[in-house]
Simulated scan of single mutants.
Amino acid sequence: MTPPDRTRRLNLQQRSTMAGEAAAAAADVETALNIPSDLTAAAFFDVDNTLMQGASIFHFARGLHRRNFFTTREIVGAAWKQTYFRLVGVEDPEHVAEARNSALSFIAGHTVTELEEIGEEIFDEGMAHRIWPGTRALAQMHLDQGQRVWLVTAAPIEIASIIARRLGLTGAMGTVAEHEDGVYTGRLVGDLLHGPAKAEAVKALALRENLDLSRCSAYSDSVNDLPMLSMVGDACAINPDARLRAHAKVQGWRIRDYRTGRRAARAGLVVAAAAGGVSGALAAGAAVRSRRH
């Protein structure tokens, strides 16, 4: 490995750690009505295609688009670029860096309060009816057992917290956007809460809450979440992509698929490409924010 490669890898690890720690620090209890009776066990749920049909950030983007945060041409162009890289299996390092650096910068200048209020509206408009009943039942099962339940997602923490609150879950960890005096700067704290960063978030929260990870559960649809799934004692693949399904079978993990027929068969390619593409589209929307200020 060349020195530049080592540097990039170290930088990624550092950003993942920062993102995870920031997400855990922001994971306040939302609406747990009762004191949990099982204090050392918890469940962690990915959101996109695990708890919710499709990508939450796509539904969020649609809501923001309707409110003129960016144009159709800009989001479609960025989505296609990201989808192309995922379909052909090539991601240009400069493109990835650009996407990371611009992620969530479309909210620069907007207030935390504004985004939270808009998020409530967007949840009612485009998210509530997309919750998978089967996954929701699994989350409720953990709550009924006296365990806490957190969402862990690359979506903005504000949106993740709204979903958790509306579903009566304990709380959420998501991508943290930097803000000063209640106004977003357009920069991230660390990195997107994705892949290794999710594992860092779970680890940091477990340390804070005195959780025994060997007694905890984790749920996801994507092989990208193997770092999180592999660190708990009970992992479950929900609506899994092909690689996660194969890994889960080898490991003896539970598998739940709430999709049907051809839709499930195609999901490994289409969902990964489309969800990733729209995530990249949001990340690439930096250039158009100033028009609203």
Rank of each mutant, 00 (worst) to 15 (best):
R73L: 14
V96L: 06
P93V: 05
R100Q: 14
E94W: 08
G89T: 01
I75A: 04
F70Y: 06
T71R: 15
S102W: 12
R66Y: 01
R66S: 14
G89D: 01
G77M: 03
Q82W: 02
T71Q: 14
N101K: 03
W80A: 12
Y84F: 10
V90Y: 09
V88F: 05
R67A: 01
P93H: 05
H65Q: 09
F70M: 01
R86N: 09
N101S: 06
G89L: 08
A78N: 14
H65P: 07
E74L: 02
R100I: 03
T71H: 15
H95P: 03
N68M: 06
T83S: 15
T83A: 10
N68F: 07
A97H: 00
A97I: 03
G77R: 06
I75K: 10
A78T: 11
L104Q: 15
R73D: 13
A103W: 05
R73N: 13
E91P: 02
V76Q: 15
E94K: 02
T83F: 08
E91H: 03
V96Q: 07
R66K: 02
E94P: 04
L87N: 02
G89E: 13
A103S: 00
H65Y: 13
G77H: 01
K81N: 14
D92K: 02
E98R: 13
N68Y: 10
E74I: 03
